[in-house]
Nucleic acid binder design. Structure first.
Lengths: 247, 247
DNA sequence: CAAACCCGTTTCACCCTATGAAACCCTGTT
DNA sequence: AACAGGGTTTCATAGGGTGAAACGGGTTTG
């Protein structure tokens, strides 16, 4: 609490309002005010500003707010030519076709992970992965990869974060991460979602720094533990190839 | 200048900073300060706030700012299931396959139009359309559609906008829009870009309100005026079908 | 090797402006 | 009519955003 904040409160609050729209598409003013814990009139002013700049629009029919087109405009420029999510796409599709399962790409953002790219399996029963989703860093194969192979310090920093689940045994988890470093890949079986399993391997750039986790996921009856270990070499090889594509 | 502003200045400025990233991917602090016309230290604080909420990140190598992952997260939820750009995609692909030309979807945003979805022709020579692009509302087939079929008032409002090109003869343009309403579709031949042509038809929702313009575009040697009028019925029918898909 | 320069960071006093309580205005409901 | 539940507007207050200036750390210039 002693932390000197060099941020602008009004802007922080406006961005919190904007971030309401990551879950659910439409919100009324009062709803938003309740969610962010601010007074109606404050939120009203913030929304007017956001609307003015095109970040939100009011649905003419429902009178509620939804995301505006400025966000689309920004996200269009998010994918640059040297963006991993673009240059790695062909290789992701190749791997998808080889294993016929959904392939995702994750990066770590503080104490969370974000799915920055995904290609879906073509099978009827498949893992459906939405790009942009933000997931906890405590469970799942790619979470463990993103922690295990991270630069020194981040592992300790994340594990000691206040948001980290307290019921998770730290020592055992650390041991698990060490095993993953030794094996070169991680698996998860019905860990985060029942019926789902995943294998994940680290992607390093040329200077050996971890940049992303490549993950293959599907229903747990297809992706049995045996099958996952069988797939692992192909995934590791694919991840290695991706590393050479990057700078 | 007498206009009572009910907006928050600090937030406005922060959003202006964010909107710098629609053109060019990377900016230094001083560059941004110059662009938005603010003092360095102000921009520094705003950027710190934006970074804190994940809307921008600092490239570790170049020390410059680029868009952060929160934008990705937001844009993921912009494409909701009832979002036109998603539900209309199959029909757009069908039309693309029928005519073998690039198909785009535009909506009006104030005095501009935004391409919210596009599927490319498979031919070697084809119109390449990027989603999220923002274009003037004064030229192009879909511009004319978005104006001609708009609700009463918006036509006059846009034409009298300060940003409207003054060299455009208003009376003649208005007549042209009336003709388009009568015809039910619009064409443009090398109007905005040399060598490019387009046909566009309006999409109305069930309550008869204009929601988007469906456009077929390609090289002007394939999309001759004759060919465009020949294509028009199919495009109108497709646009009508899309209207029934929407609420 | 200074000096000059550029960029980002920090400090600080001033006074602008964001804030929230309350009142107000709708429209629909009891 | 009275009420409820949304959104809008007003207004006094003090809290906080602001920009000038100074600082620090690089790199280029003399």
């Amino acid at each position: 609490m002693e932390e000197e904040k060099r941020t602008v409160r009004a802007v922080e609050r406006a961005l919190d309002v904007l971030l309401c729209f990551v879950s659910g598409h439409e919100w009324g003013l009062t709803e938003i005010a309740g969610r962010v814990g601010l007074h109606k009139s404050t939120v009203h002013r913030l929304l007017a500003t956001l609307e003015d700049k095109g970040f939100v629009i009011r649905d003419a029919a429902t009178e509620k707010y939804r995301l505006g087109l400025s966000v689309l405009e920004l996200s269009a420029n998010l994918s640059r030519s040297d963006d991993p999510s673009v240059v790695l796409l062909p290789e992701m599709e190749r791997l998808r076709d080889e294993l016929n399962e959904t392939v995702s790409l994750y990066v770590r953002d503080r104490a969370e992970r974000v799915r920055i790219q995904a290609v879906q399996s073509m099978q009827a029963i498949r893992r459906v992965a939405t790009v942009g989703a933000r997931l906890p860093l405590s469970v799942g194969a790619s979470s463990k990869v993103l922690l295990a192979f991270a630069e020194p310090g981040v592992r300790a920093a994340v594990l000691s974060d206040a948001a980290w689940p307290s019921n998770l045994e730290r020592a055992a988890f650390g041991k698990q991460l060490d095993d993953i470093v030794a094996a070169g890949y991680a698996t998860s079986f019905e860990e985060r979602e029942p019926g789902a399993a995943a294998v994940s391997a680290p992607i390093f750039n040329r200077s050996g720094k971890l940049v992303a986790a490549l993950s293959v996921s599907g229903p747990s009856n297809r992706l049995t533990p045996d099958r996952m270990h069988e797939y692992a070499p192909a995934i590791i090889e694919s991840a290695h190839r991706m590393g050479t594509i990057l700078g």
